[in-house]
């Protein structure tokens, strides 16, 4: 199945998540007008979410993102691990 969700982060930027999934997330793309340094690291976050259960909780997804952010010294502006996680959940229609 495929899903798309768009979410305006309160006081932040716009995040769009496009996802292909069955039991697990098979493909994911995170888009938006946010800032993330270094820019090349967004693909690390996307990679980390591939293969996780499509029925993961928002907290579980946010933790997965946070781990990548921490281990790669990523700086996010206008978006947070939590807001991306919420958008992923919105895209995965359960």
């Amino acid at each position: 199945m495929e899903g798309v969700a768009r979410h305006k982060v309160s006081g932040g930027k716009l995040v769009t998540v496009k996802v292909s999934y069955s039991e697990k997330i098979e493909r994911i793309q995170i888009l938006g007008d946010f800032f993330l340094h270094p820019e090349s690291s967004l693909s690390l976050i996307e990679q980390a979410l591939i293969g996780i259960s499509a029925s993961s909780t928002s907290e579980e997804i946010a933790q997965k993102i946070f781990d990548v952010v921490k281990s790669n010294s990523i700086e996010m502006i206008g978006v947070t691990p939590e807001s991306i996680a919420q958008t992923v959940l919105m895209a995965v229609k359960r």
């Binding site: 793309q29 995170i30 938006g32 007008d33 993330l36 967004l42």
Partner: peptide, 9 residues
């Protein structure tokens, strides 16, 4: 467009 945006979107 910004680095993380989709041109077609």
């Amino acid at each position: 467009i910004g680095h993380f945006q989709s041109m077609n979107d």
